[in-house]
Simulated scan of single mutants.
Amino acid sequence: MKAPLPADEHARLAALHEANVLDTAPEEDFDDIALLASEICGTPMGLVSLVDENRQWFKAKVGVDLDETRRELSFCAYAIHGHELLEVPDATVDRRFADNPYVQAEEGIRFYAGAPVVLDGTHAVGTVCVVDRVPRELSDAQRRALRSLARHAAVQLELRRFARHAGDVADRLRQLDRMKDSFLATVSHELRTPLSTIRGYLEMLLESDFDQETSRRFLSVMQRNSDRLLRLIDELLLVARLTEESIELEPAELDLAELVHQVIAACRPLAEHKEVGLHDRSGGPVPARGDGKRLAQALNHLVVNAIKFTGAGGEITIDATTDGEPQLIITDTGVGIPSDDLPHVFDRFYRCPSAEVMAVQGPGLGLAIVKSIIDAHHGSVHLDSKPGVGTTVRLTLPRR
C-alpha cells in the first residue's frame, strides 16, 4: 500500500528543503546517529532517513548499500504522519507492507522502527530508524533511545536552517547597521542549540545502562558538540565586541616563525585526519611586534579554513618571511574561491557556496575575525584564489 500524504505535506517539504541537507556529503554527527541507533537497538541496519516529495533519501546509513528509495516503497512515509515512534514487529503480517518488494525479497525486511525527526516542533521530515531481517520488538529503553536520537537529528537540521537564515539576515545587516546588535544577540541565543544535543545524550545515559563502548561513543559526541559550542560562542563574543570598539591588543616583541610552528602543531591532527599535507616553510626568526595571542588566533583560522577546503592528498604551506615588512603566507591547493565571491569573503556571516556543497560547518565569522585582528595591528590582508587551483592569503604587519 502507498502511504497517504500527511496533512502538512506542503509545509513539511518546505521545512525539509529549507534545511538544505538533501544530497549533501556524509557528516560525522549524522553517521554517529545511525550507528548508535543500530547498536542500541541491536539491528543490522540503522538510518537517518529524509522523506522528499518522491523519494526517501538516506543522510546516514549503517548496513545499507542504497542511497535512496522510491517514496511509495518507504516505511518512513508512514512514520512521518505523526510524532510518535512507528514500530512494525513483522512486516509480512502488516497489510501496509506485506506486498512491499523489500519485504517480499529473499531475506527481506521483517522488522522496522522509526522515530520521526520533527522540525519546528511541527513537521516530521524524516526518521531515525532501524531495520532487521527477522521479526522482533524493541524494549522500552530502546524506544526511548531511538526518540532521543531523532531529537538529536532534528537539532542538527535546525542548525543548518539557522545558518542559512543567518546568511540572509547578514545581507540586511550590511545595509542596516543599526540591526547588528539585535542580530548578534539572536545568534548567541540560537547557538545554544548544541546543548540540546548534549542533553539528549545525557538523558539516554541516565535512563539506561549501556556498555562501555556505547557510553564512550555518547561521551565523544557530547564532547565534540561542547567544543563546537564554545568555539562559536567565543567567535560571536569577539564579533560583538567589534561592533562597539576595536580589538584591545597586548603588543610585544615576537617571532612569527615560532608562531607558525605553534599553529602547525595545533592543526596537524586535523590535517592528518583529512589526509592533507601541512608544511612549515618558515626559516630563521622573523621578528615582529604584535599581540601573539591574537595573531595566533588569526593564523589558526586561516590554516583550519585551508584544511577544511582542501581535499585528501592536497598540500598546505605556511611561511613566515620579511620583505621590508613581516609577513605570514598561507597557500593551499584547495577548491579555490570564485571571483564573484572574493569581494565578500571578509564579510561577517558570509558563507561561500562551496561551504554548503562540502558541508563545512561554521557561521562564517573566521575571515572577518582575521581581518579585524590584522586591521587592529594596522596591517593588511591580501587574498588570491582560483577555483580548482587553490588560495593564497598574505598577512602583512607594519615594520617594527
Rank of each mutant, 00 (worst) to 15 (best):
K2E: 14
P4K: 01
H10W: 02
H10A: 15
A11G: 10
H17C: 10
H17D: 14
L22A: 02
D23V: 04
T24E: 07
E27M: 07
L35K: 06
L36S: 01
S38P: 03
S38D: 04
C41V: 10
C41N: 03
G46L: 09
L47D: 08
V51S: 04
N54F: 05
V62R: 15
V64E: 12
D65I: 00
L66I: 02
A77Y: 06
G82M: 06
H83W: 00
L86P: 03
E87V: 14
V88H: 04
V93I: 01
F97M: 07
D99R: 09
D99F: 07
A105G: 12
E106I: 08
E106W: 00
E106A: 15
E107R: 12
G108L: 01
I109Q: 06
F111I: 01
F111S: 06
V118M: 10
L119H: 02
L119M: 09
G126R: 03
C129D: 13
V130H: 09
D132T: 08
V134F: 14
P135F: 01
S148E: 13
A150T: 00
V155S: 05
L159R: 08
R160C: 09
D168L: 14
A170T: 09
L176D: 12
D177Y: 00
M179S: 12
F183K: 05
A185R: 13
L195M: 14
L195I: 07
I198R: 05
S215Y: 02
R217L: 11
R217G: 06
F218T: 00
L219F: 13
L219H: 11
L219S: 10
V221N: 09
M222V: 10
Q223T: 05
L230S: 14
L232W: 02
L236A: 14
L236G: 13
L237V: 15
L242V: 13
T243A: 11
I247K: 03
E250T: 10
P251N: 10
E253S: 14
L259M: 12
V260F: 08
H261V: 13
Q262M: 10
Q262K: 15
V263T: 13
A266P: 02
P269M: 03
A271Y: 00
E272I: 10
H273D: 15
V276W: 00
R281M: 12
S282L: 10
V286S: 05
Q297V: 11
A298M: 06
N300F: 09
V303R: 05
V303H: 06
V304Y: 08
N305L: 07
T310Y: 04
G314D: 07
I318Y: 05
T322N: 13
D323V: 13
P326L: 04
Q327D: 06
I330K: 07
T331I: 02
T331Q: 13
G336C: 10
P338W: 00
S339I: 07
D341H: 12
P343I: 12
R348Y: 11
A355P: 09
E356R: 13
M358Q: 14
Q361E: 15
L365I: 10
L367W: 05
A368Y: 10
I369P: 06
I374E: 00
I374V: 15
A376D: 08
H378R: 15
G379F: 08
S380N: 07
D384A: 15
K386P: 03
K386Q: 15
V389Y: 02
G390I: 02
V393H: 03
V393K: 04
R394S: 08
L395W: 06
L395N: 09
